[in-house]
Computed example of a mutant assay.
Amino acid sequence: MTTALTRADVATAAPTRRRRRVPGWLAVVPLLLFTALAFGLPALAMLNGAFTAKDPASGATSYTTANMTASVQGAYVTALLGSVKLSALAAALATVLGLPLAQAVVTSRSAALREAVLTASGVLANFGGVPLAFAFVATLGNAGVLTTHLGLTDAGWDLYSFWGLVVVYLYFLIPMMVLTAAPALEGLRSQWREAAHNNGANTFQFWRHVALPVLTPTLLGSFVLLFGSAFAAYATARAMVGAAVPLVTLQIADALSGNVLIGQEHVALALSLDMVLVAAVVMAVYLPLQRRSARWLA
């Protein structure tokens, strides 16, 4: 006699095999460990050193706020304010100059030109340090090619000054602005432009009342990102101006090497902590702006 098995019987007779799901957070454990080792330990060492003082006679260490107090006084606070001024001005100019360039790239009908400009921007945005300083010295220095042929020295041009450093920073900040602004400009919907034109708005009115309000969070976020990049730059300024322009990164290097005063290593760590605090403020402003612009341009 044949026995008919129902689905319930088969399900009951068959052994239950359930695959245990691996928690998704395990995939990020290597990244978290790397971040803790590469960034967490140096940050803790910097934080500890910024509030530590060493007695030169006995060699004993103690916790104090004297280093943080010294980092916001005298030449140190001048260098910190100089870095903020330089970074803010260079970032603002790069934002204003980079936005039209990014718009020209996005609206270009040549796909090859567009890809070439974006690729070049990616390269130039990461080109800095001593090679960049040498390139500008050979081009716009006191005996540079353009300085000699155009007589820029007679016009008052000085590469080794505050404004000369601003021009050099624009070399990598404008390409960075192109890279950050291009995706946002591509997110502007053609329906918005058509609706504006159908209601009698010209191109200027469209940008004033539609495009720029939508792009404002992105532009502010780009400015903050450019500010952070310029604020952390060191090698280019060191190779070009040395101590002629007071910058916090140069002050940190001088304090660590003892070029000005011996035993100022802990003050250098306090200055580094000041930079971290400025960077934290920058990121606290940048992330909400980035999320807000993503909602509009999604």
Rank of each mutant, 00 (worst) to 15 (best):
G263H: 02
V123N: 05
V22E: 14
W25M: 02
L33I: 00
A91C: 06
R20K: 13
S190W: 12
Y171L: 05
R21C: 10
E265A: 08
Q73T: 14
A94D: 04
M240G: 02
T218S: 15
D55R: 09
W163N: 11
Q290E: 10
S83Q: 01
D274Y: 00
V96C: 05
Q264A: 04
V260P: 07
R193H: 10
L150Y: 02
T61Q: 15
G141W: 00
V28P: 09
L150M: 10
V123G: 11
P246Y: 06
L81Y: 03
Q73E: 15
A253H: 13
L220W: 12
G263F: 04
T12I: 12
G82C: 08
A211E: 06
I252E: 12
A27L: 13
V281K: 14
G98E: 11
G59H: 11
M177Y: 11
S71I: 07
A181S: 10
H197S: 13
M176A: 09
P131D: 10
G156A: 01
N198R: 06
G24D: 12
G144S: 00
N199R: 13
G164V: 04
V28E: 11
V123P: 10
A233T: 03
L179W: 07
R238F: 15
A75V: 13
G228C: 05
F51Q: 08
K85D: 11
M240E: 03
T107S: 14
K85I: 04
T139M: 03
H266T: 12
P15W: 02
L86E: 03
V260H: 11
G164C: 00
M46N: 04
A196M: 08
L188V: 04
R18Y: 12
V106Y: 07
A181N: 07
G40R: 13
Y286T: 04
L185G: 05
S110A: 13
A70F: 10
G24Q: 07
R193D: 07
V28M: 11
A233E: 15
A13Q: 12
V106Q: 11
V72K: 12
V168P: 04
R114P: 04
R292E: 12
T61Y: 12
P246A: 02
G144C: 02
P183Y: 02
P175T: 11
V245N: 08
G164M: 04
A43S: 14
L173S: 07
S87W: 15
R292I: 10
L41A: 13
T78Y: 12
R21Q: 00
P56Q: 02
P288M: 00
M177N: 09
L89P: 01
G59P: 10
A181W: 00
G82A: 08
S58I: 08
L165P: 09
L250T: 10
M46T: 11
W296E: 12
L170Y: 08
L226Q: 06
T12R: 15
M68K: 07
F34Q: 00
W25Q: 08
T249L: 06
S293Y: 12
V145C: 03
A43R: 13
A38G: 09
P217Q: 02
S83D: 09
A70E: 15
E186V: 03
A53S: 04
L31T: 09
L113H: 11
V166W: 01
L86S: 06
V285A: 14
A280F: 13
Q264Y: 07
L47K: 03
P288V: 09
T6C: 02
G122V: 10
P30Q: 03
R21M: 06
N202A: 00
S190D: 14
